[in-house]
Structures are given as C-alpha cells and as structure tokens.
C-alpha cells in the first residue's frame, strides 16, 4: 500500500537502532519486507549494548513494492537493489556513525540477511571494495540464488510448498501457530485455501468473519512477493562469497531437508550452519530465537552463546 507522498515522512532505507561504542562492531540487517521492519528490535536488543545496529529496509524502495504489484511495468534487478544498498551503507559509514569503525581500531561490520535479504546481503558484500566488506554474512533461513533454487520466468511455485509457507506467515502475524491439515492430492488451490482459512481462524490467526474473498486476496499478495523475488533472482548470477558465510536456519525452515539452503555452492570462504527456534517468520519474532541468533553472530566481542532446546511434545 502506498505511503504518504510526503518527503517529511518518506521511509528511510537505512534505519539506525543503535550506534556502536568505540571499537565495537556494527550489525547491518537487510530486511526484505513481508514482516514489519520494527521486528529487528528483537535482535538489536539481544546483542551486547556496545554493538551498533542498523537495518537496510527494502520496504523503503518504491520500485521493490511495485515489482510485486505491477511486474509487467518493472525493470528492477538485483543489481539495482544492491546499488541502492551500497549507497546507503557507504553514506552511513562515511557519517562516522560507528564511532571508530574503519579507523584502524579493529572494529568492523557483520551483515545479516533474513530470507531474500540474505541474497542481497551477499550481493552487497561482493559489490563492496575488500576494505569495506563485513567480517561475515549471516543468512537467516535464506535460500541461495543458485540453479537448484532459481525459477525461470513464469514458472509456477508448487502450491503445496507455498501453502505451508503461507500458513506459517499467517500464524506469525498474530502470534498463533497454524497447523494446516493434510490436503488430499489433486486438491485445487482454492479448495486448499478454504481448508487453510478454517485452520487459520481456528488458530486465531485470522478474524472469525474473514471471507474467502479476503483469504484469496491475502494469498495473492503473499505469492506476488514470492514471484517477484523469483523473477529477480532468475537472471542473477552471484559471485562466490569473499567472506565467510553463516547460515542460521529456523527449526521449522522453508526447506527442512537442505542444511545449507544451497549456499554451499557460493561459500568461497567457508560456511557454518546453525539452527534457532521457531519457523521462517517467528525466528524474527521469538525472544528465544533472537537470543540464540545474537549468540551466533561473529562479532569481535560476541554475545553469550545461548543453547536452546525444542519444547517437549
């Protein structure tokens, strides 16, 4: 939905949560939309107070929203998004925000990218000069833009997979867990959506009077975002990473069977993998997931490592 066309309230690409203390690192998180950008306050709050924290919010890029809503008019590319991120990042670093960053005292940066934000955090890193690059790129349940996961233009997304992701999304927005019932093979998308609507209402994820027409519109908007990201990554040929990669998957990941979500192919400087509680969406919301993620970031002065256990069934 459009925001006010008023320069005074125009959303900013870079949102500063906290300045770094002298000698401490700054974390830059790339947010790809889908959830409110304010949720990053959870991870910012779980990091040591001296660590700087800023979010690069793609929700502030009008072309990014338009590429989902009106794809036929869009010429947006990953390269253009990376240009915008690089400009915002460099301006922030030049402002001396990080108090000591880049001045030889050893402080630096770590990039974090959730979901499609991971693709852009990696792209941004490769766009930067070696001295500007972060210590590592941390991918939060992010799928690699590699052949195994790239879709050709117009290729549909498997409805069974998307409905599972959509159920997670609906639940996360209302702090509910939607457990969709198994859908018989051959069920068409509309019938499957009707079942999911019942399950979402039963779980408290949607108001009881939500009509099927509203459910269809929600699903249409959700898949428009996925298709936009698929269109953006289809022609994109990423370079191997020049810094170490860290993949932190959600316990209930987008793709449970793949421990690296395809990033092994791009890990020129190594890849470590971890898991935190929650699903793809609630990993940004749950305090225990934020604590666990904070402890896994490769900072100069790291947060305490938190071990988490799955709750007993």
């Amino acid at each position: 939905m459009a925001r006010r066309p008023d320069a005074t309230s125009r959303p900013k690409l870079l949102i500063r949560h906290r300045q770094a203390a002298p000698g401490a690192d700054t974390v830059y998180a790339v947010h790809p939309g889908a959830l409110p950008v304010g949720l990053w306050a959870g991870l910012a709050g779980a990091l040591p107070r001296e660590t700087g924290f800023a979010v690069l919010d793609l929700g502030a890029v009008p072309e990014y929203g338009e590429a989902a809503l009106a794809p036929e008019l869009s010429r947006l590319t990953v390269g253009h998004l990376v240009d915008l991120l690089a400009t915002a990042y460099r301006a922030d670093r030049a402002d001396g925000d990080g108090l000591g960053d880049g001045d030889g005292d050893g402080a630096g940066t770590v990039f974090v990218g959730w979901s499609f934000g991971g693709v852009l955090a990696h792209g941004l890193t490769e766009r930067l000069e070696p001295a500007e690059r972060p210590r590592a790129v941390v991918l939060l349940d992010s799928i690699a833009p590699t052949d195994a996961y790239q879709h050709t233009e117009g290729e549909p997304i498997d409805p069974a997979i998307v409905l599972r992701w959509f159920a997670m999304f609906l639940g996360a927005r209302r702090g509910a867990e939607v457990r969709p019932r198994p859908v018989p093979p051959g069920t068409d998308t509309d019938a499957a959506l009707a079942l999911l609507l019942d399950d979402a209402i039963a779980a408290g994820a949607l108001p009881p009077d939500t009509p099927m027409a509203g459910m269809r519109k929600l699903f249409e908007a959700y898949t428009a975002g996925l298709l936009r990201n698929n269109r953006l990554t289809a022609p994109y040929r990423p370079a191997p990473a020049a810094v170490p990669l860290v993949q932190i998957k959600a316990a209930d990941s987008l793709v449970p069977a793949d421990p690296t979500l395809g990033w092994g192919e791009l890990a020129g400087r190594g890849l470590t993998t971890h898991s935190v509680p929650g699903d793809h969406y609630t990993m940004l919301i749950r305090p225990d997931a934020s604590q666990a993620t904070a402890g896994l970031l490769p900072l100069l002065r790291p947060a305490p490592l938190v071990t988490t256990r799955r709750p007993s069934p």
Binding site: M1, L170, R173, L206, P207, T210, P211, A213, G214, M215, R216, K217, L218, A221
Partner: peptide
C-alpha cells in the same frame, strides 16, 4: 496490511 487485503478481497 492483512486487514486491508481482507477488506479488498471482500470488496471485489
């Protein structure tokens, strides 16, 4: 945005 989309669907 979820509520806005539900209303949009209902309006259609």
């Amino acid at each position: 945005s979820t509520e806005a989309l539900i209303i949009a669907g209902e309006m259609e």
